[in-house]
């Protein structure tokens, strides 16, 4: 029961916030205040969307492994245009490994720390063991990522020489580090995109509403709905008389 509440309290508070905005819209007569209530409602809907897109244990959707991939591509540009097709060296294979693990789905969120360490060791093993072994493992890992259990590969990968870590060249260590980052879990970027544009559109439409209120004020001398209705009724009466 407590778990059920803890998984949903966010939604409920956001619903309360939304309803606050809606209440202002319904109950107040001042057009500017109504627009502010609408703004409140809108911002609360934004919060709701972002809440839905959050993944526990995730991080902002700005990819980590770019450095490894960049190195990879600079290498390609220097050697030959066709270099992309076959990665001979363990260097680029490790880069690919990083990216292939990064796409592994979210099944492994849970052991965040545990699998971090495991895959750090993986990457080091890859780099030290050289090209052939690395290539195989890379293939195996990308296969494995379909089955959601990449960390399961860990035991037989760590075996070789974890103690070599200290003697690795710095570039390789950097690679190993980025491979460890490669499996970071990201929050869902789609709601972020939708809401980001909606915020800017929201302020533009609020401005349209406000300019309508300004014109109403200039025409009627008030922005209170009751007074506006009275003025309209009085005007209709005068029209009917004449």
């Amino acid at each position: 029961m407590l778990e059920f509440i803890l998984a949903r309290y966010n939604y409920w508070i956001v619903i309360c916030l939304m309803m606050t905005g809606l209440y202002i819209v319904f109950s107040r007569g001042n057009l500017v205040k109504v627009l502010m209530g609408l703004n409140l409602f809108q911002t609360s809907v934004f919060i709701f969307y972002i809440t839905v897109g959050k993944v526990i244990g995730g991080t902002a959707p700005i990819l980590f492994e770019d450095k490894a991939k960049k190195d990879d591509h600079h290498g390609d540009d220097h050697h030959a245009p066709a270099g992309e097709a076959h990665h001979g060296e363990g260097h680029s294979t490790a880069g690919d490994y990083a990216s292939s693990v990064s796409v592994a789905p979210s099944g492994m969120t849970n052991e965040a720390t545990g699998s971090h360490i495991a895959s750090m060791a993986d990457a080091q093993a890859l780099v030290t063991d050289g090209a052939v072994h690395a290539k195989d493992v890379g293939d195996y890992v990308s296969e494995g990522s379909h089955h959601l259990d990449v960390p399961g590969l860990a035991p037989h990968l760590i075996a070789p020489h974890p103690e070599d870590a200290a003697s690795l060249p710095s570039a390789a260590q950097e690679l190993a580090g980025s491979a460890a980052y490669g499996e970071v879990l990201y929050s869902n970027p789609l709601p972020h995109v939708l809401i980001l544009t909606a915020i800017v559109v929201g302020v533009a439409t609020t401005a349209v509403g406000l300019s309508l209120a300004v014109r109403i004020r200039e025409a009627y001398g008030t922005v209170e709905q009751d007074a506006l209705e009275e003025a309209d009724n009085a005007y209709e009466l005068v029209e009917a008389d004449t």
Partner: peptide
């Protein structure tokens, strides 16, 4: 340009 335009539109109006 839109944001500045909107601001100009509001700020250029003489308040009654």
């Amino acid at each position: 340009c839109t944001m500045l335009q909107i601001f100009y539109a509001f700020a250029g109006r003489e308040p009654e």
